[in-house]
Nucleic acid binder design. Sequence first.
DNA 1: AATGAATGAGGATTCATTCAT
DNA 2: GATGAATGAATCCTCATTCAT
Lengths: 194, 194, 194, 194
Amino acid sequence: MRQTSVVDDVMQAALELFAEQGYANTSVRQVVDTAGVTKGALYHYFQSKDDLLFAIYERILSVQTEHLEAIIAKGAPVAETLRAVCIDVVETSVDFLLEGTVFFRSQHMLSAPRQLEVTRRRRAYHDTFSGLLTQGQEEGLYRKDIPTSVLVAHFFSDLHYLSSWYSPSGPEDKTTLAHQLTDLFLVAIAAPQP
Amino acid sequence: MRQTSVVDDVMQAALELFAEQGYANTSVRQVVDTAGVTKGALYHYFQSKDDLLFAIYERILSVQTEHLEAIIAKGAPVAETLRAVCIDVVETSVDFLLEGTVFFRSQHMLSAPRQLEVTRRRRAYHDTFSGLLTQGQEEGLYRKDIPTSVLVAHFFSDLHYLSSWYSPSGPEDKTTLAHQLTDLFLVAIAAPQP
Amino acid sequence: MRQTSVVDDVMQAALELFAEQGYANTSVRQVVDTAGVTKGALYHYFQSKDDLLFAIYERILSVQTEHLEAIIAKGAPVAETLRAVCIDVVETSVDFLLEGTVFFRSQHMLSAPRQLEVTRRRRAYHDTFSGLLTQGQEEGLYRKDIPTSVLVAHFFSDLHYLSSWYSPSGPEDKTTLAHQLTDLFLVAIAAPQP
Amino acid sequence: MRQTSVVDDVMQAALELFAEQGYANTSVRQVVDTAGVTKGALYHYFQSKDDLLFAIYERILSVQTEHLEAIIAKGAPVAETLRAVCIDVVETSVDFLLEGTVFFRSQHMLSAPRQLEVTRRRRAYHDTFSGLLTQGQEEGLYRKDIPTSVLVAHFFSDLHYLSSWYSPSGPEDKTTLAHQLTDLFLVAIAAPQP
DNA sequence: AATGAATGAGGATTCATTCAT
DNA sequence: GATGAATGAATCCTCATTCAT
């Protein structure tokens, strides 16, 4: 029962240190000291420092992908689905704010194969999201004068940037924020009234 | 006058390498080899590797601040001024796309005093931009149901994210893109029609 | 009786890995993985990695010493005995080619006491062989213009070198080879015709 | 003028330590401490520990190849040339006895490309030597009942084994030894008198 | 008899920076 | 102005071995 604790403690320590100082500026030594384990124990569970970074990404990627699929599985109309997706992904991005910080700053430090895997999974999310937009455009819900790729980037940018400015301990709670950002997005992309 | 060449070559090499591999993963050795100069020469002009990173930030920060001040100095109405500012800052962000990549990824690797200086200058830009929004809200141009800080972040996020997806060699030219992102923003924040 | 399988599997795996990569470059981990056993099992039967290396030496040393003693025990004339010894030791060296590879490359990596033991047993073989030569010299069979120690080394060098060039799957079979090397040696050391 | 000293001191220290303890059991730390230099200085001149090993091989390989070519260039008859080559290579092998020890024990620890390079150069020596033998066989000087490859291995084995038993401080001087080993070889391979 | 998690010392290597020239 | 040899601390990682189960 205690042995799981090593993995959890190491991941938590790594998450906090990577978010605060950056991946490259954090030594394995610091991670193990913070986690209260030995180097050997860390390397028993993680193949490399790189592996630790990947494990952090893995966590947030899995959660967001699961949520996306669950929402779509409900089969609601596009407008309702897209709104739910946007609200959810902002909320989970806040839940995993430290992971996001690490993710966006240090993704390029992963080894090539790992980077490919991350990109593959992010692209899957991106493509599904983009598919919703396209479908909405075809149904006349969303404007067509701006390329879908720009619209997608416009929304994803908000998620990306969250870790640079938002503080969960600040005045705004995550649900309010999620609704505000979603509203800004949906208003912007709405098809013009005839 | 020869020394200028060293400075320029070093900065260009550093910019490209930092953007491609990250600041932490780029050695001074790589920079001098790429630039075709010697370590001694680099350290004659730059105090430290850190100094090199700061010089890159300096370049984009100065340009954007100058542009902002020039546009405001024209004294046009708020709506017109804000639109011009948005378009301009997207365009200059594209012009300095590599600098942006480095900026957003490696800012946290600066030494504490340098980081403070960068933050101070970014905040100045942020505050001026925020001031325009507030003024517009007071004039009834922009919605008031979302905090100004969220609106500012919403726009800045697009700039931040550019280096993650936009390619100058892609199908979209920078002016078109600048108008599209500006339009998305201004539509989203417009005060509701009475 | 199940435990014998562990010992055999481990020794075979160690032999192959040590021969291919060298003792120092082979980790205990690799040995247990290749053998399909666990670390605990290995350390149950072997005191240390060093012990594994010694066990490999032990095998070839014992066989060759036994053979030597059996041949001498027949009490044939010196010339006949020496020829039989030479042929036999080439053949068994081919039979234990991998052991020879490991032996000659990694002997110096044994712990001091183990190294002494190996040297002691090799010296016993060496001394017996040398005794045959001296006896033959006294009987006028072999030349006396070259020190016995050089003659011994001259023959042992062939055994030593086998693992560097001979392949059992090559065109030469081991018996032919044994006769050829023995012939080269005996021709070279023959006393000059009066 | 002092800087060359680093390279020489490091190579001498590495040679002695590798010969005594083996390459794998010698740490870079030991090398720099013995040589009286810092790690940084070593890595300024050598790319890796591997590089150090290669540099040792390089020395002996170059000398022996040069000697071989010089002797052949004299254009003497085959019998005379082969005798000179054999004597010379035994002598230089004694001159580079430590290098030989390292060479034969640790060659397999070189990186793959380096190993290829060493093999390539050894093979060149081997092929030239083998050519002399073949030519002698065709001229009726040397026996034909044993494959050339076995004859070559038979001679090279003596060089290989030298570092296992010969001591320059022992009773035999290198020139005497060279003549003895050469004589043993040439007697053994001589064509039978008609 | 057998497991495999954990240890902790030690491995090779990199690197920003300095300084005598 | 400019060189590049030298520094030495810090880096990630490996590994033989132990021990509670």
